[in-house]
Nucleic acid binder design. Structure first.
Ligand SMILES: [Zn+2]
Ligand SMILES: [Zn+2]
Ligand SMILES: [Zn+2]
Ligand SMILES: [Zn+2]
Lengths: 172, 172
DNA sequence: CCTCGCACGTTATAGAATAACATATCTTGA
DNA sequence: TCAAGATATGTTATTCTATAACGTGCGAGG
C-alpha cells in the first residue's frame, strides 16, 4: 500500500461512520496509516498509545478518557487517569485522534497524516461521530473572523443532530 | 427604546468585544434587551438569574460557573454549585448567554432575542470572547453535513486565535 | 559503563457538573 | 381567601473530568 494514493478513502470517510461497512478493514487501514505516519515522523507509538488508538477505533464514536482507561487497565496497563490522558494527548498531538469538546471525549482520526480541518457530526440518538470535510466551513469562519481583525489558529466545529439512519427511524 | 430597531447594534457587536468602547452603555443595552425578551416571553428573570447575567456582562469574556458562583455567594446568594449552574442554564436556555465548550465556561449573548447562530472568537492572549455572525459558517456546515445525510440541529463553532490588539502586540 | 531523556506508573488534588432532597414562593382556580 | 400545584432556591453528597508532582525503568549516545 503506497502512501499518497486513494483519495477516495478520504472522501468517503465521513459517510462510512453512518453506514454499514467493513469496519474491521476500515479500522485496520486507519491503524496502518497511523503507524506509517508515526514512523515517518519519529513519534513513538508505544504499546499503551497504540492500544488506546485501537480502542478508539473500535467504533465511530467518541469515548471518554475514563472509559479508555478502564479498557487499558483491564489489559494490564496502568490504572490511574494520567495513563489514559497521556496516551490520548499523544494521539491528539500527533493528529491520530481528535478531542470532541462538546462531549469531553475523544475519537480516532479517520485519515491521519493528511492535513485537514475537521468538523464533527455527532448523532444525538446513536452517538455515532463522523469527521466531515470542513475546509469550506473553515473558510467561512476565517472570513467572519477576518472581518473583525481576528486571526484564527484553531477551530472547533461540532454539529449535534441526527445521522441518516436515526433520522429515518425517527420519521417512522 | 423600541424593540426591533438599531440593526447597527447587532452588526458591530462582534467588533466591540475587541475594541475600546463605552462598555457600561454596551452592557446596559444588552441587559435591557434581555429584560424585554424575558418579559415578552414570560420567562422569570429572577434576582439570582439577573445578577448572574450582569456578572457575565461585566466584560467580553467567558466565566466559569464557579467564578460566577463565587461572585453570587459573596452577594448573599447560595454558596453551592447548583445555584450557579441553574442560573446559567436558565440564561442559556433563554438565549441570554452561551456556553463555550472549549473553555467549560459561559458568556453573555450580545444580542439576545434575535435569532442567530453564533461563532465565538476566543483570544488566547487576553481571553476576550467575541460573538461573530455565523450564518455563512452554518450554511457551509449544513452543506457538509447534508452531503452525508446528516441533519444539523445545534452547532458549536469556536475559534481560538489572536484578537486584533494582541496580534499587533505580538508582532511588535 | 554512565547518564540523559523519555515513557510509564503511582498518589494526591483540582476543577466541572449533577443527583437528590428540603424549603420557600409564586400562581391559579375553587 | 385559601388550598394545591408548579416553580424557584437552597442544601448535602457524589460523580465525572483533568492535572500536578514525584519515582522508576529503559534505551540511545557518549
Ligand atoms: Zn469504520
Ligand atoms: Zn444515529
Ligand atoms: Zn461591551
Ligand atoms: Zn486578545
Amino acid at each position: 500500500m503506497t502512501d499518497r494514493d486513494t483519495p477516495e478513502t478520504t472522501d468517503s470517510a465521513a459517510a462510512r461512520a453512518f453506514s454499514a461497512h467493513d469496519h474491521e478493514a476500515c479500522a485496520g487501514e486507519v491503524l496502518a496509516r497511523a503507524e506509517a505516519v508515526s514512523a515517518a515522523r519519529g513519534a513513538r507509538l508505544t504499546p499503551v498509545r497504540r492500544r488506546a488508538l485501537e480502542i478508539l477505533l473500535e467504533a465511530h464514536r467518541a469515548m471518554g478518557a475514563y472509559e479508555v482507561l478502564d479498557r487499558l487497565s483491564a489489559e494490564g496497563f496502568g490504572k490511574q487517569p494520567p495513563v489514559a490522558y497521556r496516551a490520548l494527548d499523544f494521539l491528539v498531538e500527533q493528529g491520530l485522534a481528535h478531542r470532541i469538546a462538546r462531549l469531553n471525549a475523544f475519537t480516532a482520526c479517520v485519515h491521519p497524516g493528511e492535513a485537514h480541518s475537521a468538523a464533527f457530526l455527532i448523532c444525538r440518538a446513536c452517538h455515532a461521530v463522523a469527521e466531515a470535510e470542513a475546509d469550506p466551513v473553515r473558510v467561512a469562519l476565517e472570513a467572519a473572523a477576518g472581518a473583525v481583525g481576528f486571526q484564527v489558529e484553531r477551530a472547533t466545529v461540532e454539529a449535534l443532530g441526527l445521522c441518516p439512519s436515526c433520522r429515518e427511524a425517527a420519521a417512522a
